[in-house]
Simulated scan of single mutants.
Amino acid sequence: MPALSARSVVQVAVSDPRVRPLLRELGEEYSARYGKDAHAELARYPDEEFTAPHGGVLLLILENGEPVAGGAFRRYDEDTAELKRIWTHSAHRRRGLAREVVGELEREARARGYRRIYLTTGPRQPEARALYLNTGYRPLFDTEADPESIGPLPFEKHLPSPARTGKATAQ
């Protein structure tokens, strides 16, 4: 019987060395799909946007200490978190890890008081489009149109209100 892997979800800074495989592989994949160097796009936002107190987070799923999936969100506006850099290592795809990352990011965004999630994905990423449609995201574009004619494909999802704590609030 194969040994079970030790899995954990950790919040990390963009500068954490375990993030490098995520950014490297994302850059290579986006560059191959879109025919231009995508590494500049991945560096478009300052690292601070993915950490507290700036309203963001970067999560990694580790198996036996190695990153297998990850993703981030940044503050889009006071009520909205924007998902960025959702990634699953190419050797670990088709295991539901991206769905797990999105769920973890949604939980963290909700815990931080966000009520909505916004994201865009590229027209040449049908797997991402399917992931968001299958996890309850509402497309903000015509799903019947040719994705190449739209450009980045925007989605949104409204998060449930946080559970009441039972504490009275001052009026």
Rank of each mutant, 00 (worst) to 15 (best):
M1E: 14
P2H: 11
L4I: 07
S5I: 13
Q11N: 03
V12W: 10
V14F: 08
P17R: 10
R18I: 04
L22G: 03
L22Q: 13
G27F: 01
S31N: 12
G35T: 07
K36E: 13
H39E: 10
L42C: 06
A43Y: 01
R44W: 08
P53S: 10
L60D: 05
E63N: 09
N64R: 06
E66I: 09
G70M: 03
F73E: 00
D79R: 13
T80Q: 07
E82P: 01
L83Y: 09
K84C: 04
R85W: 07
W87Y: 05
T88A: 10
T88L: 00
T88R: 01
S90H: 11
A91G: 12
H92N: 13
R93L: 02
R93C: 05
E100H: 05
V102D: 02
G103N: 02
L105P: 02
E106P: 07
E108F: 01
A109K: 01
R110F: 01
Y114L: 09
I117Y: 07
Y118F: 15
Y118R: 14
Q125L: 09
P126R: 13
E127N: 06
E127W: 04
A130E: 15
A130K: 15
L133P: 01
T135Y: 02
T135H: 04
G136F: 08
D146G: 05
E148A: 15
S149F: 09
I150D: 01
I150Y: 06
P152Q: 10
L159S: 03
S161N: 12
A163E: 15
R164M: 11
T169C: 12
A170L: 15
